[in-house]
Computed example of a mutant assay.
Amino acid sequence: MVITKGCDRSEAAIFEGMVKAGIPLDLVATPDTQYQEMLSNAGVRVSSQMIRHRFDISAIRRIRSILKNTKYDIIYAPANHSLAVALFASRGMSIKHVGYRGMVGNLSRWDPACRVTYFHPRLDNIICVCNAVREYLLSVDIPAHKLTTIYMGHDISWYDKSPPVDTVDFGIPEGAFVVGVTGNMRPVKGIPVLLEALRYIPEQVPIYLVCIGHVTDKQISRLLKDPQIGSRAYFPGFIPQASRYAKTFDCMVMPSIKREGLPRAIIEAMAQKVPVIVTDIGGMPELVRDNQDGLVVPANDSHALARALMQMYEEPSLRKRLTENALKSIKENFNIQTTIKEVIALFERLITHKDNPV
């Protein structure tokens, strides 16, 4: 059984792949979960259930009722709320539990919310999206035998039919070098550092910034009041399926300053042959090898970001080399078929060692 509050394209492909491999799978998800029709057509039995928080009594009772009527070997709950609900609902039952962790930091054994999820004694394994996440979980004393690194793979065919979107609608001059960022603009994402980098770009260089997503970092509005920054930066807000814009950008940037895992936006850019710049935080150096698949700069360094942006702008041959290497890396190292095989292998090991730690 999979219990989740949502489902992205990679997760849907994993579930579909498991069914194709002959593994029966039931999905309990919120009514607005994406890809339900695709999964139903693949043979996944989909049930709707709202999960409002970690202690949602109605969700716990509903799932416990399902567990009593159907025998499951494993529950995979990739979201915090669904993991807590799964562990509460399965009390007294002989079922293996697998969670998922996609970012570094923000866990404490003394936090009640963490004690009913990642530090729960009945949690058998945590899929770590990158080695940086695994190392962090080891540092907070989660046993190594409970941790498995599995990169969340993609398939470049997902993006073949995605047409580029015109950025003229944002007011950007024709012929400009457009730098893109997609995602929620929280303080950990380092957008103010990227905005500060615009100060060090010569005025005559037509580098413009487009940041797509919800803005919660209060520093951003203050910085945009500076004409030197505000005249080059556009924040259109949240746009559904923002990955469609990747092909429009001349470069994609992820300037995170902490807690980053393996950012999907950067994988999507690499899969679409868009050059990338990232900081040396979390799993990003695992995804992007400096000067091979993209450029890696120190976190919190606006001067380094400005130099990297200028390098991308001035060297078309560099952009071509980086994107060719990046596409090859996605195909070979971040392939969804490899992810499916590794997830299945983990579940099979858990079942084989039913009464012992893996």
Rank of each mutant, 00 (worst) to 15 (best):
S94H: 15
V296P: 04
V210T: 03
Q204I: 13
N333I: 05
R321K: 13
A176T: 07
Q272I: 11
V343P: 01
R259D: 13
P202W: 01
K218P: 05
K225C: 12
R45Q: 11
S40Y: 06
L137K: 04
L350A: 02
T33D: 04
T70V: 14
E135G: 07
C7Q: 09
D124F: 09
V140Y: 12
Q337A: 08
I330V: 11
D293G: 02
A13H: 01
R64Y: 11
I201Q: 05
I66S: 08
W110N: 15
Q292L: 13
Q241I: 09
I63C: 09
V2W: 07
D290K: 04
A89I: 06
Y136E: 03
M1I: 02
G22A: 04
A86F: 07
F119P: 10
G171K: 07
V215Y: 09
A12E: 07
F238Y: 15
Y313Q: 07
V274K: 01
I57G: 10
V278R: 00
V165K: 11
I351A: 04
Q311K: 12
L107I: 10
R232C: 05
A12C: 13
S302Y: 05
P121M: 09
P121G: 05
I344G: 00
E11Y: 12
P240M: 08
R61M: 04
T117D: 03
Q49L: 15
C114W: 02
P164G: 08
D56K: 00
N80M: 14
H53Y: 10
P173N: 00
A233R: 00
T4C: 04
S231E: 02
V140H: 11
K247E: 03
E286T: 09
E135S: 14
R91W: 13
K146T: 05
S317H: 12
P187A: 00
N300Y: 15
S329Q: 08
K218I: 14
P112Y: 05
M310I: 10
I207G: 06
I142A: 06
L147E: 01
N125S: 14
K146D: 06
Q204G: 12
V85I: 12
P298S: 09
S58W: 09
C251M: 10
V116M: 13
P236D: 00
F235D: 10
I23S: 03
K328G: 15
H120M: 10
E324S: 10
A77G: 00
V165E: 02
K218S: 15
M50W: 04
V358C: 10
P163W: 02
S329T: 08
D8N: 01
D355F: 13
Y35L: 02
L318Y: 11
A12Q: 03
D226S: 02
G230Q: 05
D124L: 06
H81Q: 15
Q311A: 12
D124P: 01
I340V: 09
